[in-house]
């Protein structure tokens, strides 16, 4: 079964200038283990799409379901729980919680899940080891480089073993070496844990890593192809 399915998913924004069709009738499935890049120019609707897939927003019309459950049927608490238990986010701007150390940031989702403290800590430490930050556990975000912060963010997104990891322009703030390293890391994690990854980007270097490449234009799917590597 697919992890996420979209059927005619549409998201309009009402603005003073009129209605913006950010996403306009999109239909596709995301399958377990996909390593998928959603590409498209700025304003093509990538972030809008990720917000729907990530249960942060609901479609204006059409159906978006995660694990077979339509978002339209879920209230704020149920959506929060769905995000907590099934989805990991990696943001462009890292978005670590500034008052928490690296390991506490990684522990946060497990804290919400009610995982006991000792288990939380050992799993978070292990995950930070996996992303190569095993010796920076107790650093606050402001004492880490951009690349290091993004690795913490990846560890945070993955530690609770989500079905789906969503990354909206994760390399936009990184130099090319750090971008490459981050993509290597995520590709490895995808293979090792069969975690499903969806990236949004307009960075060709990132597109080149995709094993499924979907192009968006003006809120519509322009192409969707699987690439054997």
């Amino acid at each position: 079964m697919s992890v996420v399915s979209l059927r005619g998913a549409t998201r309009y924004y009402e603005t003073k200038a009129g209605i913006v069709r950010a996403l306009d009738g999109v239909t596709f499935d995301i399958d377990r283990g996909d390593f998928m890049v959603v590409a498209g120019p700025s304003g093509s609707g990538k972030t809008t799409l990720v917000n729907l897939i990530g249960a942060l927003d609901k479609p204006t019309s059409g159906v978006v379901s995660i694990d077979g459950r339509s978002l339209a049927d879920l209230d704020g608490k149920a959506l929060a729980d769905l995000r907590r238990d099934r989805i990991g986010f990696v943001f462009q701007a890292y978005n670590l919680v500034p008052v928490l150390t690296a390991i506490e940031n990684v522990e946060y989702v497990m804290l919400l899940q009610g995982v006991p403290a000792a288990e939380r800590r050992s799993r978070a430490a292990e995950m930070l080891g996996e992303v190569g930050l095993g010796d920076l556990l107790d650093r606050r975000p402001d004492a880490l480089s951009g690349g290091q912060q993004q690795r913490v963010a990846v560890a945070r997104a993955l530690v609770a073993r989500p079905a789906l990891v969503l990354a909206d322009e994760p390399t936009a703030n990184l130099d090319s070496a750090a971008s490459e390293a981050l993509m290597d890391l995520m590709a490895t994690l995808n293979e090792r844990h069969r975690t499903t990854f969806v990236f949004c980007t307009h960075d060709p270097a990132l597109m080149a890593r995709a094993r499924r490449l979907m192009r968006l234009r003006d809120g519509r799917v322009e192409s969707d192809e699987r690439i054997a590597r």
């Binding site: 989805i87 978005n95 919680v97 989702v109 919400l112």
Partner: peptide, 9 residues
């Protein structure tokens, strides 16, 4: 961000 991580209202 906290909400995206699954923090309930």
């Amino acid at each position: 961000v906290l909400m995206a991580l699954g923090t309930r209202p």
